[in-house]
Amino acid sequence: MSILEVNNVNKNFGGLKALNNVNLQVEAGTVHAIIGPNGAGKSTLLNCFVGRLEPDTGSVTFDGESLLGIKPFQINQLGVSRVFQTPEIFGALTLIENVMIPAFAKRDGAFHMEPWRSVGSEAGLHEQAMEMLSDVGLDAKADELAGQLSRGDKRRLELAMCLVQDPKLLLLDEPTAGMSRGDTNNTIDLMKRIAQRGVTMVVIEHDMHVVFSLAEKISVLAQGTVIVEDVPEKIKGDPRVQDAYLGGAHL
């Protein structure tokens, strides 16, 4: 059963056709990678899933509900979480607060006001957030300010913020960009563990090592169109993919 369905999505920026009749089906419980050269429209596509961009035509359905015309916070409340290319975290807050906020959002909804309740009395939620932090290896820094973390740590924090919500669909935009080899391997391990829990993931990634160690299915995007969609083994040898990536290298 596909949990995310993208049908004939088009998006133009002025004269530029960023997305051209994109079709995509993401099966529930799988890791689906979207690869493609720079400017192929990967991030644009992802932005259409979370309400940051509205496609000109076409439809995006998640779990039977359309994601078009609703706000980012509503999409998240449906069970879609996103990790950004540049980590988006609450820099002025501590790590534990960073993870508790999404947990509150999941439990209490988009707006909730009970000013007489104290954060200190939320033991269950605090514990849940601490577990999530130790899962990504940041529990020792729980009381530090998130803004002071290294880039790799910020990314892992952002991942913890998404995971604490127990999302049905997790979107990752280049989760290992700018990471060292060691950090990248740690992140791959982490993502494998997440995948084992049955979380559906859509990953945009340039690092083929990451893509081939995670993805069960790969869509190749070039110039705004899905040119191939297949299992990793077949993608590797596909001449169209090499052509898209290497351009006219054989000319």
Partner: peptide, 18 residues
């Protein structure tokens, strides 16, 4: 805490379902 989150990063807040 949510009010401090508003000051820190509104974008993250809305993609967090708030």
């Amino acid at each position: 805490m949510m009010l401090r989150a508003v000051k820190s990063n509104q974008q993250r807040m809305s993609y967090t379902g708030l």
